[in-house]
Design a binder for these strands. Structure first.
Length: 367
RNA sequence: UGGCUCGUCGUCCAACGGCAGGACUCUGGCUUUUGGUGCCAGCUAUCGGGGUUCGAAUCCCUGCGAGCCAG
């Protein structure tokens, strides 16, 4: 096939083993590949990553570009991250980043560079449903690396142009392939933690202007057990760091912003059986028409659990127009408002949204 | 002030006179493109002073401290 007939694809490259191997796979599949490293944060690590990507691209014989995304990242990820914490939520910056910063910037650059498609090194697959022509994300074949959760907020327009070369591979496959091809980043450790924060996130929030407001730690009956040093340092479901000794470990059950109280309880009290989810992005269909039995991931890297989703009851004072009610078939350990609930049927993602509230009907009714 | 009970890791509780153990907290590690969970590991204690005993957290005396009942 002559070069002029090859499909041109723009690959987001972090400089890590995944995206670099993805580049080699796309080349092998016959694409004309351009590597693009987005700079989200202006620091040493970003520059090193970009250099790693450039080195790999040179070795693979493909073009490499660098794109300054610091302003967009600040507006769409970093600032909302701080604002969310300030309002008592526990944000999921990676989910937001993919949908609002990384993929949009990639597509924008692809248009500029004349690339029909874009790609990333995520472990997930994309499919087009024959029934309605909609694009969906499917789980990676390797469930232990599945990153579909992180792509739950992508729009149809974005999915239509996205290619995920690693969706059918295991991490071991990827490393072995990278070794075989002698890629320089074959042994680079996996990334982890929030990419834009070096130390602890509470310190980051303080640097960004949040002020620690000390307040009471109370139990479910309102009894004061101790003091906390700023609600933003805690997240619902958290065990470590509360500093209270009792017969059993305490967990954070709720953060009450209005009274600046941290509510704690024992493990049984962390169980929830319903959720209110807002800001939904549906992929498998345009709109939730009727109550649907499916599964839901309440957090990245957890098994999806059985549930029923339906429009939030209009009578409920908490109902939001775009919100849905999720009833869990079995009680689950709680998760924090601000996190994402992502729905699946089998290995096909339906869509997902932000958790606004969690419900513990079980023990609330029991008193 | 009479009478009773009790002082053990940071906290709560164990240990027939025989290597002071557990839970929680805390610290560290593993896991991980979010927070958190989970798993593993580790640190830390017999209130002070005498005595009995081969040997004392344990028995005796005493000081200090805490709680309860009296008045």
């Amino acid at each position: 096939m002559p070069d002029s007939c090859k499909k041109k694809i723009l690959l987001g490259m972090s400089g890590g083993v995944d995206s670099t191997t993805a580049a080699a796979l796309l080349l092998q599949a016959g694409f004309e590949v351009v590597g693009l490293t987005c700079i989200f944060i202006n620091n040493e690590e970003s520059r090193r990553s970009s250099e790693d990507a450039a080195t790999s691209c040179a070795q693979l014989g493909i073009a490499h570009e660098e794109l300054d995304c610091t302003r967009e990242f600040e507006e769409t990820v970093a600032r909302p991250f701080v604002d969310d914490y300030a309002s008592g939520l526990t944000p999921s910056p990676c989910v937001s980043c993919n949908a609002r910063c990384k993929i949009p910037r990639l597509i924008e650059a692809a248009d500029r560079l004349g690339c029909e498609l874009v790609a990333t090194g995520h472990y997930a697959r994309i499919a087009c449903l024959t029934s309605n022509g909609r694009y969906v994300v499917k789980c990676a074949l390797d469930p232990s690396k599945d990153q579909s959760y992180m792509l739950s907020q992508l729009s149809q327009d974005q999915l239509a142009r996205l290619v995920l070369p690693l969706g059918a591979m295991t991490k071991a496959d990827v490393r072995a392939q990278a070794q075989d091809w002698g890629l320089p980043v074959a042994d680079k450790p996996d990334s982890q933690d929030i990419c834009f924060i070096q130390g602890g996130y509470p310190e980051y929030l303080v640097e960004r202007g949040l002020t620690a407001q000390t307040g009471n730690i109370v139990d479910l009956y309102g009894q004061v057990l101790g003091r906390h040093d700023g609600l933003f340092r805690y997240t619902v479901g958290q065990r470590k760091g509360i500093g209270l000794a009792a017969s059993e470990p305490y967990y954070v059950i709720e953060k009450r912003s209005d009274t600046n109280e941290l509510v704690v309880g024992f493990k049984d009290h962390t169980l929830i059986d319903s959720l209110l989810v807002e800001g939904l992005v549906w992929q498998a269909f345009e709109k939730l028409e009727e109550p649907t039995e499916c599964t839901v991931k309440l957090r990245y890297r957890s098994q999806a659990v059985a549930c029923t989703v339906k429009a939030a009851s209009p009578g409920s004072p908490d109902a939001v127009a775009s919100g849905i009610q999720v009833d869990l078939v079995r009680p689950q350990p709680t998760t924090a408002p601000g996190q994402f609930a992502v729905f699946y049927i089998g290995d096909t993602m339906l869509g997902g949204g932000m958790i606004a509230q969690v419900g513990h009907r079980l023990w609330e009714e029991a008193g």
